[in-house]
């Protein structure tokens, strides 16, 4: 299945401080901490497993501003 047909989130690597609150918040285990380090010196989170239901739990739990954006897949017939 292509990305076009699935929900997903985008983590802005420049804004993420790697606290991992989103990882615990995600009901489907979609997020993980990567190995890369950003300019602030944090290993930032990344969207890893495509089981996102666009529930927004990661978004609401995240303590940064705009570090996570949640995208919903196109509705059927839309």
């Amino acid at each position: 299945m292509s990305l076009e047909e699935k929900n997903f989130i985008e983590v802005n690597p420049k804004r993420c401080k790697g606290c991992a609150a989103c990882i615990v918040a995600c009901p489907n285990g979609c997020i993980e901490i990567g190995s890369e380090i950003n300019q602030m010196g944090y290993q930032f989170a990344r969207f890893a497993v495509r089981k996102c239901i666009a529930c927004g739990m990661c978004f609401y739990t995240c303590p940064e501003f705009g570090a996570i954006t949640v995208y919903q897949k196109p509705r059927k017939g839309a």
């Binding site: 420049k14 804004r15 401080k17 790697g18 606290c19 991992a20 609150a21 602030m40 944090y42 609401y60 739990t61 995240c62 303590p63 940064e64 501003f65 705009g66």
Partner: peptide, 17 residues
């Protein structure tokens, strides 16, 4: 475009809400 809050601080979450 990052906050001054420490990683994992609750303030940012409340600010967002």
């Amino acid at each position: 475009d990052v906050s001054h809050y420490c990683p994992g601080c609750g303030h940012g979450t409340v600010h967002n809400l």
